[in-house]
């Protein structure tokens, strides 16, 4: 499934992540998935939100730099080789480069979910659906 990911630019400075989380909480927005990529100076917080349009709106209002991107969300078996066989290998064979991804365990036993950023999420989805 193709979903909207909300990315936020956050300086590596005390209190900045908290400030961003406060904005989401105040607007009753839940995070379904979260990953942070960081350098020495800044981080990029990537989230799948319960309401991404509203999330973007309130974060912008709070002066954060925000970007919405299409990413691919897939379910996979929570077993050895799960990621390899269901996601990584098929995309690799199709010549699709993974920009980044983050995975988490599903509440349903035996399953995990992965969020994948690729150049063309539609095409990636088609390949994985085969």
């Amino acid at each position: 499934m193709i979903v909207k990911q909300v990315s936020v630019f956050v300086e590596n400075q005390k209190g900045r992540l908290v400030a961003m989380l406060e904005v989401l909480k105040a607007n009753n927005i839940n995070m379904h998935a979260l990953s942070v990529a960081e350098t020495t100076d800044f981080g990029i917080v990537r989230m799948i939100l319960s309401d991404s349009d509203k999330g973007v709106e309130v974060l912008k209002k709070a002066n954060f730099t925000v970007k919405e991107t299409d990413v691919l969300q897939r379910e996979m078996p929570d077993i050895p080789g799960g990621l390899l066989e269901t996601i990584a290998k098929p995309l690799n064979e199709a010549g699709i480069n993974l920009e980044y991804f983050y995975a988490f365990i599903d509440p349903a036993p035996g399953k995990a979910t992965i969020v994948v950023k690729v150049d063309n999420p539609k095409k990636a989805e088609e390949i994985l659906d085969k």
């Binding site: 350098t39 800044f42 990029i44 990537r46």
Partner: peptide, 15 residues
């Protein structure tokens, strides 16, 4: 300052 125009969700592009 990072504007929306230059902001990317990819670290590589920001670097």
């Amino acid at each position: 300052e990072v504007s929306e125009e230059v902001f990317s969700d990819e670290i590589r592009k920001m670097e």
